[in-house]
Design a protein around this nucleic acid. Structure first.
Lengths: 228, 228
DNA sequence: CTGAAAGCGCTTACAG
DNA sequence: CTGAAAGCGCTTACAG
């Protein structure tokens, strides 16, 4: 149903490749041919078939993003700014939510791999490390967001949680707080690092105060996987 | 880099089409060949190239969703449940956010069209009606979410706002409220309909009480476009 | 049940 | 500057 290069080429009596070149702003086309082609593509409101283009170029202009929950403001914010940055490069986001379900997460990663995406980003998930390694091995660039996992060949973008804990504690010290407690969430790397920062700041005080530490969530908490 | 049907076929000395059939559970393949193929695809952890499949079948298994803002809980909720329903059918969501920018919105729709999606859903946007009509004309099924616009050939899923206004008002009446006001948002169809419902419920009372109506947002409010 | 042929819509070399 | 050829990885008919 949609218009193809072939039809435009036939209409104009030129080879397909010429039309293709015009549309990708190739230099080596005469001004006359160029104008003719552009006119016709406009008349028919031609839209290149990105699927076909992907197949031959090997680039889908699509980046996968796997997050545990779209409704969680943190991940929604990540998705939003990620999409905005990618858009500047002509890339689009294929967002998958795992709903916190490890089984689903594996499936989604398999699916993303089948789509031959330009890259796959995985945000802070209780993702199976083998699954992540599979992605990294597939040749599709893998970016880990927020939660660092030891995967060969993966990139990482996240928060310096140690620094965060330290800054927060130093702030409290600077405004005159004396007895400072560390109230934390589940037992994951995020909490560990922030606690490290808390300790570091506390240990610089004279005399060093006792550590006070509370845990907000049980370790086995259902939502542990995607609470920061 | 990734494994292809061709390689598997070559390894096994069978034609490509046989491998393809096995993977799609075609009946007319001998048990022996079938097992051989499955074994080899597993060994190589073959993943079908969905781009290639899309090109030939004409189905991308991808549905576009255009929303004004991912961070708005209403649209995040829409995206989430939509994705969940689609997943049951083996469909995936390509989410685009227009950031409330009409220009960007046009571009995104053009892009979605180029991807030859199986369907495009547009949620409650100040979308240009011409753009929407373009989508509808393209042959890609169009679904309007939440906000109804008179587009030929478009489907619509949304809230019965008149009924909502009526139900809310009737509830207040039933618990004994006497003087009931209608406090509303911007001057769009949603508010109008709810006000209709409010009126309808009020007019059934004896004696009919006076209407009391407040507007929460100025008509020209920046966010009018995507506040319900 | 097996297999050779054609084609999806495009792009990448490479020859004139 | 123009154009014929090959191919991306797969599936759909259709002949044996």
């Amino acid at each position: 149903m949609p218009v193809t290069l072939k039809e435009i080429a036939r209409d104009l009596g030129v080879p397909i490749v010429t039309v293709s070149k015009v549309l990708r702003n190739h230099e080596d086309i005469s001004r006359k041919t160029r104008d003719l082609v552009l006119k016709r593509t406009r008349e028919l409101s031609y839209r290149p078939n990105l699927t076909a283009r992907s197949l031959v170029t090997g680039c889908s202009s699509l980046v996968g993003l796997l997050i545990p929950d779209l409704l969680h403001p943190f991940f929604a914010e990540v998705a939003r700014s990620f999409a905005a940055k990618l858009r500047e490069q002509g890339l689009y986001l294929l967002i998958c939510s795992s709903e916190g379900d490890p089984e689903l997460e594996s499936q989604q990663l398999e699916h993303l791999l089948s789509r031959r995406l330009d890259a796959i980003a995985v945000a802070s998930v209780g993702a199976d490390e083998d699954d992540l390694q599979t992605v990294a091995n597939s040749g599709t660039p893998l970016v880990l967001l927020d939660r660092q996992v030891p995967i060969a060949n993966a990139h990482f973008v996240g928060v310096n949680d140690l620094r965060v804990g330290q800054l927060a504690t130093e702030h409290l010290i600077s405004i005159g707080c004396k007895r400072i407690a560390h109230l934390r969430g589940p037992a994951n790397a995020v909490g560990e690092k922030r606690f490290e920062g808390y300790k570091r700041a506390q240990e610089r005080r004279h005399p060093v105060p006792p550590r006070v530490r509370y845990r907000g969530f049980r370790q086995g908490h259902r939502e542990q996987g995607f609470r920061r």
